[in-house]
C-alpha cells in the first residue's frame, strides 16, 4: 500500500522540527547576526547591512591571511591523508591475515579527542624535552632536531602531520572497502598479461578507486577547511600568525572580543568557501569517475 504524502509528512514532522531547531534556525540566525553589530550584550544589536563584509575583504590579518593559511593547511592535509590512506589501503588489501588488526590499529587515532591529541603532540614536539627530539638525538640525528612548533615555516606542516596521523586510517578504510570490490579476475588477467605491479595500480586499481577518491578528498577537504582544535591547542596560531586559521579568528572575534556580528560574517564566508570548493572538487571528480 502506498503511503499518502500527508501521512509521510506527518511521520517526517518530528525529525524536521528537530532539524529546524538545531540546524536551520541557528544557521539563519547566524546569517542575520552577520548583518548586525552584535556584541552579545544584554542591550541588543543594530542592523548594519554589509558593513561586516566590507570590513572583511579589507582585513588582511583577520581574514585574508588566515584564509590563505586555512587553504594551505587543507591542501596539505588532503594531499597527505589521501596519499597515505591509499598506500595503507593497498598494503592492507594485499595482506588479508593482517587486515582486520591493521584496520583497527589505524582507525584508533581518529577516535581520540582532538584536544587530547593536540596536547599529547605538543609534548612530543616540545623542543626541550619532547619525544621527537629525544628520539632523533638517540638515533644520532641531533642536527635534525628542531623547534617544531616554533619555526614559522615548520609549524603548519607539523600540525597538519598530526591531522594526517589521526585520520589516515579513516581514508584507508574507505579506500580498502572500494579496493576489495575490484574483481580479482581483472588483476589476475593483468598479471597473466605481464603487467607490472605499478602498471596494475596505475591502469586498473587507481581508476577503479575513483569513487573512494571522491569521497575521501571531499571529506578531508571539508575537515581541513574547518580545522580549529589542533592549531588552537598546539600553537595558538603562532609563531606570529603562521598557524592562525580562519576558525581561530572566528573564535577570537566571537568569544575573545565579543564581536558576534563580525564573527558571524566570517563564519558565513567560511561556509560559502567550503561549499564552493567542495562543489567544484566533487563535480570534477564525479566526471572523472564517469570517464573511468
Amino acid at each position: 500500500m502506498r503511503m499518502r504524502s500527508q501521512t509521510a509528512l506527518l511521520f517526517l514532522m518530528p525529525a524536521l522540527l528537530l532539524y529546524s531547531l538545531i540546524v536551520v534556525y541557528p544557521t539563519l540566525n547566524g546569517l542575520y547576526l552577520s548583518f548586525t553589530n552584535s556584541t552579545g550584550s544584554a542591550r541588543g544589536a543594530e542592523f548594519i547591512g554589509l558593513t561586516n563584509y566590507e570590513r572583511m575583504v579589507r582585513d588582511v590579518s583577520g581574514f585574508l591571511k588566515p584564509l590563505m593559511t586555512t587553504l594551505i593547511y587543507a591542501a596539505l592535509v588532503t594531499a597527505g591523508q589521501t596519499v597515505i590512506g591509499l598506500g595503507l589501503a593497498l598494503w592492507m588489501g594485499k595482506l588479508p591475515r593482517l587486515r582486520d588488526a591493521a584496520r583497527v590499529a589505524l582507525f584508533t587515532p581518529g577516535m581520540l579527542s582532538l584536544i587530547i591529541v593536540g596536547f599529547v603532540w605538543s609534548f612530543i614536539y616540545n623542543p626541550l624535552s619532547g619525544g621527537l627530539n629525544l628520539l632523533l638525538t638517540s638515533l644520532g640525528l641531533e642536527l635534525w632536531t628542531r623547534s617544531w612548533l616554533g619555526e614559522p615555516g615548520l609549524a603548519l606542516p607539523a600540525v597538519a602531520l598530526v591531522n594526517i596521523w589521526m585520520f589516515a586510517g579513516h581514508s584507508a578504510a574507505i579506500f580498502l572497502a572500494n579496493y576489495l570490490s575490484i574483481p580479482s579476475e581483472l588483476l589476475e588477467s593483468a598479471t597473466l598479461e605481464g603487467a607490472s605491479g605499478w602498471q596494475r595500480f596505475w591502469y586498473i586499481e587507481f581508476p577503479l578507486l575513483a569513487p573512494a577518491l571522491t569521497i575521501n578528498t571531499a571529506l578531508t577537504l571539508i575537515g581541513g577547511l574547518r580545522v580549529f582544535e589542533l592549531p588552537y591547542v598546539m600553537t595558538r596560531g603562532g609563531p606570529g600568525d603562521a598557524t592562525k586559521v580562519l576558525n581561530m579568528e572566528i573564535f577570537n572575534q566571537a568569544f575573545g572580543q565579543s564581536n558576534y556580528g563580525y564573527g558571524s560574517a566570517l563564519t558565513v564566508a567560511l561556509l560559502l568557501i567550503i561549499l564552493s570548493l567542495t562543489l567544484v572538487q566533487n563535480s570534477y571528480l564525479r566526471k572523472r569517475e564517469l570517464n573511468t
Binding site: N126, L128, S147, G150, G238, P239
Partner: peptide, 15 residues
C-alpha cells in the same frame, strides 16, 4: 627558536 616553540605556562613550568 626554542622559546617560540614552547608554551609559556605549562611547558615552562614543567621544565
Amino acid at each position: 627558536k626554542i622559546a617560540l616553540g614552547l608554551g609559556g605556562y605549562d611547558e615552562v613550568k614543567n621544565e
